[in-house]
Nucleic acid binder design. Sequence first.
DNA 1: CGCCTGACGCAAA
DNA 2: GTTTGCGCCAGGC
Length: 114
Amino acid sequence: MKDPRLQQDFFEQVYAVVKLIPQGRATSYGAIARYLGSGSSARTVGWAMNAAHGRPEIPAHRVVNRLGMLSGKMHFGNPMEMQQRLEAEGVHVVDDQIRQWERVFWDPMKELDT
DNA sequence: CGCCTGACGCAAA
DNA sequence: GTTTGCGCCAGGC
């Protein structure tokens, strides 16, 4: 990501991908980072989500770490909100971990790859 | 300014 | 096989 303009839009790019996540599916910070070309900036994606608060358009609950763990649930107003929203979409969560993660996982690289 | 931290992820020890 | 450390980008102090 050498273009400063793209860096500026990094968050927006993250949001754009997150908004594309289908209901009942979830992806990982790293997957989004790789899709955006910054494969090793998964943390920044997490930071972007942190800044996504107050953005109902952005289903932050559908973004978890690469293991399918709800690592960011504490950053929701109510830690259970993330899990509840996932469950409401048919994604079962046990012990802060998504069940059948392989099936639920939505890889933008794979799904949106041109 | 420079140093530290963070919703992560991978390599190395 | 488990634990530690570093990189990535942005923001706070």
